[in-house]
Amino acid sequence: MEDKHMDVQDIIKPENRVYKKPALLNDTHMHYCPGCSHGVVHKLVAEVIEEMGAAEIAIGIAPVGCAVFAYNYIDVDWIEAPHGRAPALATAAKRLQPDKLVFTYQGDGDMAAIGTAESLHAANRGENIAMIFINNAIYGMTGGQMAPTTLLGMKTSTTPYGRRADLNGYPLAITGLMAQLDGTCYVTRQSVETPAAVRKAKAAIRKAFENSMHGKGTSVVEIVSTCNSGWKMTPADANKWMEENMFKKYPIGDLKNE
């Protein structure tokens, strides 16, 4: 018998495949930095839509922020919203087309600063949408400025000596507010820094999407994320820093599940 090492041809056989790119994640090169959480969350969103068989009814509302180009990566219909207004666009898209799966994909500036009113009111009305919220505590796209969720003491380009409560106010845990609203049915905080966390995050996104199709109200999935470029750390250090610091202010787990 000859030595039975697998060669490339064997490895790429379909029956040997253990991992694949979701069909709804297209081949465009992502602009995200290596180590960024966005790529993982994009993959999860694409997988969930595919697994729900919802590609023909999915409508994403992209934010302003690093995920502004989400519409280039996930192969469904998209509208690119003005900064902070994604929940308003989603409200109309869903109310005018109740049979569609409508979700927003927002960063911390979009959700908790410029778009606070739209986010809270869409959730308070109980719009049947899912809101994916990437909280990396910094403005990545514009070069690392303070976000509403930036932790006290955290250095950003607009808090170069660290965020101070007396100068800059306190970090805003907006999902905590949203969990208190009668219009939300499911508010959860997840992360994607370990395979186990990724699996939980995916389940959360699936639940949020299913809730919206069952007319249960607004679901919010916060992904506590890293921005290793903005934080000026290696991806591994950023994950560690997140677990040690971000999770204290933004503890992982369900805030509301009805």
Binding site: A81, A88, L89, E118
Partner: peptide
């Protein structure tokens, strides 16, 4: 602000 963006969405 929300109203015009709902119009945009629609």
């Amino acid at each position: 602000l929300a109203a015009i963006n709902m119009v945009y969405g629609g």
